[in-house]
Design a protein around this nucleic acid. Sequence first.
DNA 1: CAGTGAGCGAGCTTCCGCTTGACTT
Length: 642
Amino acid sequence: MEFYHSLKAQNNIFNITRIYLLYTFILDVSFIYMAADSTNLIIVESPSKARTLKRYLGDNYQIEASVGHIRDLPKSDLGVDIENNFKPTYVAAEDKAKVISQLKKLMKNAATLYLATDPDREGEAIAWHLTEILNPSIPVKRLVFHEITKKAIQESFDHTRDIDKSLVGAQEARRILDRLWGYQVSQKLWYNVKGGLSAGRVQSPSIKIVVDREKERAKFKEGEYWSITAQFDSKGNNFESRLKEVESHKIAIGKDFGKETGVLTKSDLLALDESRATKLVEAFSKSSWLVSKIEQKPATQNPYPPFITSTLQQEGIRKLKMSSQQVMRTAQHLYEEGYITYMRTDSISLSSEALNASRNAIKKLYGTEFLPDKPRVFKSKVKNAQEAHEAIRPAGSTFQSPKDVQGNLKELEWKLYDLIWKRTLASQMKSAKLLKTNVEISDGNAIFDAKGKVIEFPGFLKVYVEDIDDPGKEKDDKESLLPPMNEGESVSATEFTPNQHFTKPSPRYTEASLVKELEELGIGRPSTYAAIMGNIQQRGYVRKVKGALIPTFTAYAVVQFLERYFTDMVNLQYTASLEDTLDAISRSEMKSDEFLGYFYFGQNSTPGLQALLDSEFDKDQSRTIMELKDENDETIAVKIGR
DNA sequence: CAGTGAGCGAGCTTCCGCTTGACTT
């Protein structure tokens, strides 16, 4: 109460447009007289959020956590009455009995119930489930804040609202669709492929992505090509360059070859083979060379946005060689100990507290020359971002530097904190200033080119450089220097070298690149990326070998089955578009039972899930993964199952 | 006669998303 008073004092209470503020103010005061021992109950999702909130609010607020969802569909039963508008049956989660009885007890003494679950689809549903299970007779208000600061909490008390039924409807539609899809299609797998298998809206597209890549790699045909590099000398300075053109024909490189043919796809390019390369080298050593073109252009490079769940996992996997699940476990620890903000988020926004802390730290550690005039604002490009929390960053209004905390943390925890601290600071630092130089050396017939990159001002690169999956690409902070030269200047060639190359297939997915792919497609949520990675390995769909994800025979069989009988369900575009429809439901533009009706019973000429479930399944073929010929040319089928 | 293994039938598996401990390996 004390806190609320001081908040009010900061407000212009005489402002007529905010007269209802005064009204709630009076209500709150009246509680003091009504019942000295009566309190307000605030329910949040996470226990550590409850602890933080306690520091801000006085004794008149009881703050408890629901610890996530409290009710769900039953585990051993479909729990959806398809004939009755997809009516769901909910049961209280077994492990939440304690939480529920505690909440019921606290509510007996409460004057008002504030539901402060997360401001997103799932949070709205948790709030609604709470009212269903607690059945409160006291006033219920929905409280929404995006960060835990005085200002944000004050505003949330000023703008309490009712539960948003459309948002709850969208969550229910999501839940019911996942149940119908997951349970019913899984059962078809048991009867037609192998017992115990699983399918679902998220896991099945995930394994399809891995299987598709493996198939692409199997079809890959290697192509051979040659390149020529030269060492040139300008006034005693050596530099390397690469043959770009001969007689106005560009020299072919790896990406110019067909992946399934190994043959050049563009006819106007020149693909060098060994003899051609050797002959050219011979001819080049007799030529005289001069600088035919110099291009210099300044470039700026902007920092990466601060971490969200997916990018934290990617960098944790790449830089620290952790798994998705390890990254999340470690981050959870850091969060609970108060070192970082919430680690399951899809928002790249930083709160004003974080912006201040970053700017102070940058000024102190690197000086004002690394500090932009204004804080940098990032806008999410991720489809379907719900942005219930801020980006992942060091906690508090002043950031503890990695050195400060080194003694308190285990090695990996410290490394992850260090990464988060650096990434956050870098995101608020000045852009890097680069000077890119492109030089062409010609003998009138062939052209070599050399690229230079000079970092004139490092900006954020001083603190953080992102790691890369693709070994062909160069890291952002890699410099390459060229000596100063003038157009028309002659240069001497010291050496020409022919190099043999082979084209490479697309690399296998890693946990990092698969999480990235799923996020770009809008499949899965921050709280589930790590679980999906664990799940597809545990169920024997994918094996991880030196970080690379390799699909098993089971995965091939399941993907083949789903593509044949449930084509849309594993269509990545379709899966991603479901999310758009759920958004429409949350904006009240569509009703959830209408959506589920289309999904299950079909729409126009598109069959729904029900029709697909009723198809005739070819059991024998579904178990066949491949057919081989033995030495007598007899066909041997490889099947799975028992 | 004891031990092995084929054959049969019953019972079970499964989704996604939100949160932590309480478990085992």
